[in-house]
Write a protein that binds this DNA or RNA. Structure first.
Lengths: 343, 343
DNA sequence: ACGTGCCAATGAAACGATTCAACGGCGCAG
DNA sequence: CTGCGCCGTTGAATCGTTTCATTGGCACGT
């Protein structure tokens, strides 16, 4: 019974028209008289015809698909970026298919291969390690590529990324504007570049105030546990040596610090100590004291990445652009007494 | 310069062989003499030939791709399920491409359309609402489908899912085994079926102990905030009416309850009150008191889903199977005093 | 009545890979 | 020397769609 899938030929036969006409109904409905169109449509519905994308693409030479390769779909940053990219692509008649490299170079390479064989319109890649050479050959073969959350040092392809220095700056400036002067920066060596950038931004902000001081405390990792550890040590200092503002290099650290500070020492947040994190993970809004944080403009990045890619697809010779966004400050109760239990 | 992509014909010309021979090098290397094989390979490398999947698939009639449609890639359950599915597919020479329906029926339908047009080998779908009719037509057209995290009431297609009744049972049995007798179940109306199942399992466990009582408390939502609310109300009861074990229908509720109970009343967890959640979200391990929880066997589900699908692809007439897994209990400090600060 | 234009519809060519029947050359047995 | 079988290679047919030059039919103006 399940002999062969229904082809455009079958539809044509049943509707009593030529295959070209069926194709026109599908792709250029205006070229076909309404009576014929109706007849063809009836045949399509009746037979349950589904267009064979492989054949279409073979003839057309191009697909309507964009490949997106992310480091980790479990990471909310990437999942919400993917969502935005999908929406933007859909508005332009394309579809995003997602590949999860899981930070694994091999899987990344496999997805690049698959997408290239599928002749996707272009790829958005948040690369593991150095994809320089790989991207180079892709581009040589005419495959548009946009890097996500990473800039290409050689400016060979467009990219969207975030300015972590600006993020660090705006976090600490926020503390300073709230009147804090004894600032502690908590970070770990993991993901060196980002942490270093955030620290650099923090320094920059502190230097604008003569009476402000910045102390750097190193954590073992970028985790809640490590943060709790650091928080415990800080909370046990004599009152005179306590900071009045803490900026953590990510939210997990900040949540750990918060747990320790509230429980061990009973300090009040934000009255005694203002606390700010980075990344704005889901849970930050639900912490005992909702955590102020710095977040990447994820949706904007996703949309922009797709737009850059479409731009390059339309005019392959257009100039490559490196778009760098400033992150945004999300104010919550951990720095602003007025706001309470905000979502 | 970028005239046209390199085709198998170009490779054949450069290597001085027929196109059929190039195809054989790619698909049946043993049929070709090693000297020819080498010559062809050199031509491929030199020209940067990439196989056109559309043409291959058009001729072959089938792709090596599996479509996976999930409710929300941001949800750790789905991202880790996807990871497992990808691994299992890769071991079988297939590739998984991911579509995120974002709980939106329209997007779900769009991905089903796209995947069907792409003639994927089969689809794994965690459906939004009722996909019954849709799945029916897919199957009629010979497209293998396996449902994920949902059973098909009409048994028309295979599925992998989890027994939430068993989960609720094992959670409460765990509390009972720790000597707790005054149990509270906290749930909300959201996601009715799952919550109802977990409650049913809880009741079942309580009924096995004559001296145990179960009280059901309804929360406004399945969120941390709602949990904090419920926790606050419970913590303010007179000592005689306090429960000694609380089972929350998900981890967010449980974390909210924990926050309230620890801060408002200063009760000790687990000494005064044992607490158990459901889902085992990432954050549960990092709560102030690490949260005992119940988790779905995600990796196993992902692999099994792919296996069921491949089975159906190989023998389309094979019997449909509904695989239902029991969840697993993850013991942490919120119920077991001995375990402390476990990861 | 005849030519002109226009619109709808036609059907064959093309896309690039795979497949397979046919072919040629070579070695070996009779 | 001839015939047979084997192996490696060939090239045409094929998949389902899109595209486009061509055709057929109809209405209208002269």
């Amino acid at each position: 019974m399940d002999s062969r899938p229904v082809s455009i030929k079958d539809v044509a036969d049943r509707a009593g028209v030529a295959v070209g006409t069926v194709s026109n109904v599908l792709n250029h409905p205006t070229r076909v008289s309404s009576s014929t169109r109706e007849r063809v449509q009836t045949a399509i519905d009746h037979l349950g015809f589904v267009r064979n994308d492989a054949a279409r693409q073979l003839r057309a030479g191009q697909s309507r698909t964009i490949g997106l390769i992310v480091l980790d779909v479990g990471n909310p940053f990437f999942s919400s970026l993917a969502r935005a990219a999908e929406d933007c692509a859909a508005e332009n008649g394309s579809t995003v298919v997602l590949g999860d490299s899981g930070q694994d170079v091999e899987r990344e390479a496999r997805y690049i291969d698959v997408f290239e064989q599928q002749r996707v319109q272009g790829m958005l890649i948040s690369p593991v390690g150095d994809v320089g050479p790989r991207v180079e050959t892709l581009r040589k073969r005419g495959m548009p590529v946009v890097l996500v959350d990473r800039v290409d040092a050689q400016r060979r392809c467009s990219s969207v990324s975030v300015d972590d220095v600006a993020g660090g700056y705006m976090a600490v400036r926020h503390l300073l504007e709230a009147g804090r002067r004894r600032i502690v920066f908590v970070g770990a060596k993991a993901e060196f570049q980002q942490v270093a950038d955030r620290l650099a931004g923090a320094r920059q902000a502190v230097e604008e105030h003569d009476d402000a001081v910045l102390e750097v405390v190193e954590a073992d990792a970028m985790t809640v546990l490590a943060g709790r550890d650091v928080g415990g040590r800080i909370a046990q200092r004599p009152p005179g040596e306590l900071p009045d503002g803490i900026f953590c290099a990510n939210d997990l650290l900040a949540i750990g610090v918060m747990q320790a500070v509230l429980l061990i020492r009973g300090l009040r947040i934000p009255e005694d100590l203002a606390l700010i994190g980075y990344d704005d993970i889901d849970f930050s809004a639900s912490a005992v004291v909702p955590l102020t944080s710095v977040r990447k403009p994820t949706e904007l990045m996703g949309r922009t990445a797709v737009e850059l890619l479409l731009e390059e697809i339309e005019s392959p010779s257009s100039r490559r652009r490196q778009v760098i966004f400033d992150p945004e400050l999300v104010e919550r109760g951990s720095t602003t007494a007025a706001v309470h239990a905000a979502g």
